[in-house]
Nucleic acid binder design. Structure first.
Lengths: 244, 244
DNA sequence: TCCAGAAAGTTATATGCTCTAACTTTCATT
DNA sequence: AATGAAAGTTAGAGCATATAACTTTCTGGA
């Protein structure tokens, strides 16, 4: 029988890939990262454990694949939010809020991405796909800041007043990102990125629960200062509540 | 035979506790968090695995004990740095630099503290000792900011201009910390804490390696702004290098 | 001094995990 | 229909946490 071009074999294989990752994600969300295991996924799919190794060479590869998916989903969410948003509010704000919205409605997923174990000197990891997806995610914000820079500039510090070693690593980074920002502007971008992403990290990893139930006010405060930095108009999120 | 009051039995038991934790820490530092296991520790001590359960009821308890130790060591380091430091430079600066110094010279230890798994809804953890030590650590900085507040004040936002829910949680936090700071000042404290600790988190969890080899310039920039916030004089760390 | 009993350590074992090896089944293509 | 790759199976090695039951070691009291 003539098959559709993707091939029936490959289609069911693709479907199995999806099912494995869906089941794994379900376990992650319901029972936490520790509960995600090759065997647990296989049990829930009612197949034997080793069968899963036809699809993923190792446990780490399965986790890396999940990580990659999460980055892509997060990226897609942010892009979608940017497209659909009110044109009056700065895209950078829309994107930042979309990032947090995804992070706090998917804490386990975000936590998996963030709290990956430290490489511990040894081990050249097989995280290429995951780190690529991660870079694409970061690129979203970098490109937006680059657009702002090229359309109207924003204040930047003087490279000569920095420690030479720091100026060097900024130049290296500017090169690495294809010079979409000059080193001085890259410093500002990184500084803001650190504040925003660092805050999200602390929130999701529950490092602020000793004091706060709702971190959003601090996130909005951070966004406000971010707008000042880039010379954007800060539009409060009131009226378009974060958690609808 | 009459023993010294602590009792010989208890002394050797205490020594075994220490050895277990020392060995576990060695494994953590050398081979990463994943490699820390009850059996691995026992092997290295040349005792049988189950023997360790005379000292720790579970693997999680061993980890929690390590976490507690790390917090205490970090706290002690910061206190020592504060005592020994040049009186001309603000204690808050000295303490912040001591914190980072410890964190980056003990990345695995700091990572263990930070990247503890998410509670995943269920599970009432046995982390009381660890979280107590963690609170003592945070208290160090809180007390310092409180001292600054009571000696000369610093600018604070208006509580009435905040979202009511946020004002409420700030008041609750102020109560929780025994009113050593009013809610408005608590907001400022938390805001600074988030920036400083969040940056450290990102650095140690290697979330900045895509761009930076040395995060110190950003840390110092953060400290400079922190000094502005609290009305302190920013003394560069030059001349007393961070990594001697 | 000797002995009862607690403390500390042992082996054996249950259960779960990752992952490999060897075998069987399924199924699309020739 | 036959072939051979793909997908699934069971068996098992090796390591993990943890418990149970046993032995050894040491302490404190008669």
């Amino acid at each position: 029988m003539l098959e559709a071009l993707p091939g029936r074999r490959e289609r069911v294989r693709e479907a199995t890939f999806r099912e494995i990752k869906d089941v794994a994600r379900g376990i992650l969300v319901q029972h936490g990262r520790q509960a995600v295991s090759v065997n647990a996924v296989a049990r829930q799919m009612k197949i034997s454990g080793p069968a899963l190794y036809r699809y993923f060479a190792s446990y780490d590869e399965l986790i890396a694949s999940l990580t990659s998916d999460f980055f892509q989903e997060l990226t897609a969410d942010i892009v979608a939010a940017r497209e659909e948003a009110d044109r009056a509010v700065a895209p950078l704000l829309v994107m930042s809020r979309a990032m947090r919205k995804w992070a706090i409605s998917h804490p386990q997923e975000f936590g998996l991405v963030f709290a990956s174990p430290l490489p511990s000197m040894t081990a050249t990891k097989v995280e290429s796909a995951a780190s690529e997806a991660g870079e694409a995610f970061g690129r979203l914000f970098l490109d937006e800041v680059s657009a702002i820079w090229h359309s109207k500039r924003f204040p930047v510090p003087d490279l000569d007043e920095m420690a030479p070693a720091h100026a060097d690593q900024l130049r290296a980074y500017a090169t690495q990102i294809g010079n979409v920002l000059p080193p001085e502007a890259a410093h500002v971008f990184l500084s803001c990125w650190i504040r925003l992403y660092g805050l999200l990290c602390m929130e999701v990893l529950q490092q602020l629960e000793f004091a706060l139930r709702d971190v959003e006010p601090f996130y909005e405060e951070c966004l406000e200062q971010l707008c000042q930095t880039f010379g954007l108009e800060y539009g409060s999120s009131l009226g378009r509540p974060l958690l609808a």
